[in-house]
Amino acid sequence: MASEAQAGRGIDVLRDAAEGSQMTEQPTTSPPPWHMAGDWFDVCKCAIPCPCTFAQAPTYGDCEGVLAWHIREGNFGNVRLEGLNVLMLGSFVGNAWTREHTDSYAAVFFDERADEQQRAALQAIFGGEAGGWPAEFGAMFGPEMRGMDFAPIRIEVDENLEAWRAEIPGRVMATAEALTGPTTPEGARVQVHNAPGAEVGPGQIATWGRATTDQADAFGFTWDRSGKSSKHFPFDWTGPT
């Protein structure tokens, strides 16, 4: 089970960034009302479909992969966030949903296009200090942070959810195509409603895919594979509650 120290690291997820990372100073006042909605997807080492979305332990007992967020609309008080991207590398052993997991690690990349106010807002939201679902998920996952950086993050999601992709040149490449098969109607998507382990929080629909590229080489995360699980979720968060 994740320790209390790990849970604390989940709430203050970005404060443990690797030494030398350039953090934007966080405000000491209470966070303003905020809202963020867009696309989230992952590619991971689990077999299709990833058991984590069903609140089960990973296929091989441990999981590692790429998590990507594209913000279609968003604000942190008066600070606009639409069009920005965030990407995370993560790994853990065991079932995170039951908090029976260990060895949880993460590294976070924020969109280098963000200005100073936007950077502070993204760090507050994804670091858990601004409340909402990211704070809940961070407290549960409780990762030890390996690093944080601002980087050129490219994320593309087809409007018909036929494919999705993310890239940080030279460091991360994640691409996937919608899962299909001989009995899937043409153009239809394989989806799950009311997922018991939705990484973006309750109330969203998972669209299943197959990873065509899953590569990482950053902050001690190193892998290169394809053919494993991927899924897309829309996300819609509010805070600070």
Score class of each variant (00 low, 15 high):
residue 70 H to T: 05
residue 70 H to P: 00
residue 72 R to D: 13
residue 73 E to Y: 03
residue 74 G to W: 01
residue 76 F to W: 10
residue 77 G to N: 05
residue 80 R to L: 13
residue 81 L to T: 04
residue 81 L to C: 06
residue 82 E to G: 15
residue 83 G to L: 05
residue 83 G to N: 06
residue 84 L to Q: 08
residue 87 L to G: 01
residue 88 M to T: 09
residue 88 M to D: 08
residue 89 L to W: 07
residue 89 L to T: 06
residue 90 G to D: 11
residue 92 F to P: 00
residue 93 V to K: 12
residue 93 V to Q: 12
residue 94 G to C: 06
residue 94 G to E: 03
residue 98 T to L: 12
residue 102 T to A: 10
residue 102 T to P: 11
residue 103 D to H: 13
residue 103 D to T: 07
residue 103 D to A: 12
residue 105 Y to E: 13
residue 107 A to F: 05
residue 107 A to L: 00
residue 108 V to K: 01
residue 109 F to K: 00
residue 110 F to E: 02
residue 111 D to N: 08
residue 111 D to E: 08
residue 112 E to N: 10
residue 114 A to P: 03
residue 115 D to T: 11
residue 119 R to P: 02
residue 119 R to G: 10
residue 120 A to D: 07
residue 120 A to C: 11
residue 121 A to P: 07
residue 122 L to Q: 03
residue 123 Q to D: 02
residue 124 A to Q: 14
residue 125 I to Q: 07
residue 125 I to A: 06
residue 126 F to T: 06
residue 128 G to L: 07
residue 128 G to C: 08
residue 130 A to D: 08
residue 132 G to Y: 09
residue 132 G to A: 12
residue 133 W to N: 04
residue 134 P to Y: 08
residue 135 A to K: 15
residue 136 E to F: 14
residue 137 F to P: 01
residue 139 A to W: 05
residue 143 P to E: 09
residue 144 E to A: 12
residue 144 E to L: 11
residue 144 E to M: 12
residue 146 R to D: 04
residue 146 R to G: 03
residue 150 F to V: 01
residue 150 F to N: 02
residue 154 R to S: 14
